[in-house]
Amino acid sequence: MTQYARLRWEGRRLWTTRGRQAASDGLRRALEHLLAESRKIVPLDEGTLERSGRVDVDGLNGSVSYDTVYAVRQHEELTWKHLPGRSAKYLERPMNSERDVMLRLMAVPLRGWLRG
C-alpha cells in the first residue's frame, strides 16, 4: 500500500549535488514523519502491519509503504471494525492532515542550502 504525492521544483540551483542532497534529505524527513503519524492509526492486531511500514528515498523520489498481503485491503475497507483510535485510510488521512508539516520539513534543508 503506497500513497503518492508529487512536488515540482522550477529552480536551477537544485541541480547541484548539494541542492539535490538537501531536497532528498527534506523528502526523507517528511516521509519519516508521515510514517510515524500513520503508525498511530494503522489497524492493530498483532502489530505485523505496523512493523511492515517503511520509507524509501532514492534521490528525489520517495515512498511510504506497508508491505503485507492485506495492507491494501485494510487501507481501503471502511466497514471493518478496528481497535479504538485505529482505522482504515491509515496512510491517506495523515498524508492529508500532515501536509503542511511535511512541506515545512521538506523546506528546512532546502532553506539552509539556499541561504548557505
Rank of each mutant, 00 (worst) to 15 (best):
K89R: 15
E46Y: 14
D58F: 05
R18E: 13
E46C: 03
K40S: 06
D56H: 12
Y66M: 01
L35K: 15
G19H: 07
M102W: 03
R115V: 10
V108C: 03
L83C: 03
H82W: 07
A5N: 09
L34V: 07
P43C: 09
L110R: 05
L14E: 04
L34A: 11
L105E: 09
V64I: 04
L91W: 07
H82K: 08
R73N: 05
W15Q: 15
L44R: 14
S87A: 10
G62L: 01
R73E: 04
T68P: 01
V69N: 07
E37P: 06
T16L: 03
E92C: 02
E76D: 13
E92P: 01
P43I: 06
D67V: 10
P84A: 12
Q3M: 05
I41G: 13
V42S: 01
R8S: 14
T48D: 11
L110H: 07
L49K: 04
S97E: 12
L7I: 15
A88K: 02
N61E: 07
M95I: 03
T17P: 04
R115E: 12
V69E: 08
G47R: 14
Y4H: 14
I41W: 06
L14V: 09
S52I: 02
D56Q: 10
E92Y: 11
A71M: 03
I41M: 14
A107Q: 13
T48F: 10
A107K: 13
Y70A: 04
K89D: 06
H75A: 04
E37D: 11
V64S: 04
T16S: 14
P43E: 06
L114Y: 10
Y66N: 03
L83R: 15
D100N: 11
T48G: 02
L110V: 09
H82P: 03
L110Q: 07
G116K: 11
R13A: 10
P109E: 09
R54P: 00
G112H: 12
L49P: 01
T68S: 03
M102C: 07
R8T: 15
H82A: 06
W113F: 15
L114G: 02
L114I: 11
L78E: 14
G26Y: 01
M1Y: 09
W9T: 09
V101H: 09
R6K: 15
R86T: 04
H33T: 00
M95S: 11
W80Y: 11
Q74P: 00
W9H: 13
K40D: 06
H82I: 02
W113S: 07
R20K: 13
R51G: 11
R8G: 09
E92S: 08
E76N: 09
R51K: 15
E76S: 08
E76P: 02
L78A: 15
R54K: 14
D25E: 10
L44T: 07
V57T: 03
P109W: 14
R51H: 12
L105T: 12
G112Q: 12
T79N: 11
D100K: 13
R12C: 03
R29K: 13
L34T: 06
N96P: 00
R29L: 08
G11S: 13
R6L: 13
L27N: 02
L105H: 12
E10F: 15
E77V: 06
A107T: 04
D45P: 01
S65F: 01
P84H: 09
A36C: 05
T17L: 08
Y90A: 01
W80N: 12
G85N: 05
R12E: 11
S38Q: 02
D45R: 15
R104I: 02
N61Y: 05
